[in-house]
Nucleic acid binder design. Structure first.
Lengths: 129, 129
DNA sequence: ATAAGGATTCCAGCCACTGGAAGCTCAAGG
DNA sequence: CCTTGAGCTTCCAGTGGCTGGAATCCTTAT
């Protein structure tokens, strides 16, 4: 199967698929004409990667998860550890974003947003140096 | 004032301050020895930038906000517009992260995390191709 | 024969820094 | 005066995860 069809079936852009080959996340075969030739198992892998990425896992996490997936002797504790750590990072990000949101929304509400130059947002950003 | 002291007073690493000069966010003077020579106004600017960045504004947004800050004839509506757009982006990110969090926390809870290989997390990631 | 569509490679760029190397200046101590 | 160390300079490269674009090749249809 050529990259175009694989792209449609996996939902990943061809560029991304080539990139994943570059960094050895997939290893498609090659046809005589030099085209990549994907097996069903490659598509399976790519879809796996797509979903892991959609959950925000880093490429390195994805590599680890793929490895565990293919390792019949894995312990689910290993998978859970990776996922828990990632979950904690997500929570951190959410916390940080919420704090930004808090501050920013207050400022936005306080700003008249009219033709006059006075602006609590700028005032806050330039407060005490 | 040299970059080290400016770094302490503004809270930004020297590398970042140099970078901000590179991209013309600040324009410190130069001493005879070639060292950057910062005025109070430069520190003020850098602190402004640091706070804007801490609220998650992009560098380009920061440039715009600095421009508005220095423009006496600005209209607060312009500032508010920038801030509101950024707020919307933050909200989008939070929404996306929360959705990841939802999915991931369910999966983590469902996973036994023991010595056995069976794992709902991997099962989910590899679901229907 | 040619044109269109898809494949290939490779290089560059995104964002906002950050690390590191090589070399300069300056202040303090022996 | 010499050395040592801290602090400053520039420049190049790397981060993550792609994405865009150019130049070229392969395949298929007209």
């Amino acid at each position: 199967m050529n990259i175009g069809e694989v792209s449609e079936r996996s939902g990943l852009p061809p560029k991304t698929i080539r990139y994943y080959e570059d960094i050895n996340l997939v290893r498609p075969l090659r046809s005589d004409n030099g085209y990549r030739s994907f097996r069903e198992s490659d598509i399976h892998k790519l879809a796996f990667l797509g979903r892991a990425r959609a959950l925000g896992f880093s490429i390195e996490d994805c590599r680890t998860l793929m490895g565990l997936y293919e390792d019949e002797t894995r312990e689910s504790a290993q998978v859970k550890a990776v996922a828990k750590e990632h979950l904690a990072e997500i929570d951190n990000k959410i916390t940080q974003l919420k704090s930004m949101r808090e501050t920013l929304s207050h400022l936005v509400e306080a700003c008249q947003g009219d033709h006059r130059p006075d602006c609590p947002i700028l005032k806050d950003l330039s407060r005490g140096v």
